[in-house]
Amino acid sequence: MIGWIDTILQGVLLGGLYALFALGQSLIFGVMRLTNVAHGDFIVLAAFGAFALASQAGVGPFGAFAILLPLAVAFGYALQRLVINDTLGKDPLPSLVVTFGLSIIIQNVLQEIFSADPRSIPAGELTTASVQLAGGLAVGTLPLAIFVIALAAAAALQWLFARTALGRVFRATSDDRETAELMGLDARGVYAAATALAFALIALAGLLQGMRTTVAPADGPALLIYAFEAVVIGGLGSFWGTFAGSVILGVTQGIGFRLDPGWGIWLGHVVFLAVLLVRPAGLFPRMR
């Protein structure tokens, strides 16, 4: 019994990490209806950036993040302005092809520079620290911190979208780009702001993924799948839905791994397909 509680608890915490993958994807899809195929690769790229900074510059993981964050935001903004904006339109194919191309480029460049070896961002004592719970259960401090950070990120995004002028602009542009432009908005600039914000999440996700486990140059597509599954399970258009979808995916994978070490990822896919079949709009579709 205690073993099952432990499994579910660890799955929930894993879901927190997945939420960080998925929130950025959800944000970009929500604002510009773009499926960024390179999303996972950008997370891996950020992880290697943090790894290089932390190990070469000797600034530690949090110093590395302080350097990485503004770079990632600027990169996201420029990427949207210079590349992705021109691929958006009624036809989803150009943006899919271009982000797919970016995915391949990132994987190969990383492999060229860092080799195919999995790397980990040294996190010192955080790697092994844990918190004792009742009944002999223990959770890792780092996974717990990641879960709390993801929860805070989901809350912050939900607040930003529901309560601020920027969120209003994001929703309006998502609803009807042409009319938003009639109101005096520059949709390309709005998209660039959204992508810049998504890249802040990507930097965060990359750092924490690299600290919690290992990253290798070819990991991106798997991370993309988890993000994608979490977004679809949760339902499009709500960040809480995305968070819940991530936790469901994490718990499902945890249960799968417990049943059979080869079943974890597979069971996640099964639940994703089941949700798609039974509730194509997701379990928690947009509130408004």
């Binding site: 209003r168 929703r171 309006a172 609803d175 009807d176 938003a180 947009r286």
Partner: peptide
């Protein structure tokens, strides 16, 4: 804008 309230729609103007 369907995801905006009446007031938010006005503010978009």
């Amino acid at each position: 804008f369907p995801s905006l309230s009446v007031e938010e729609n006005l503010l978009m103007g």
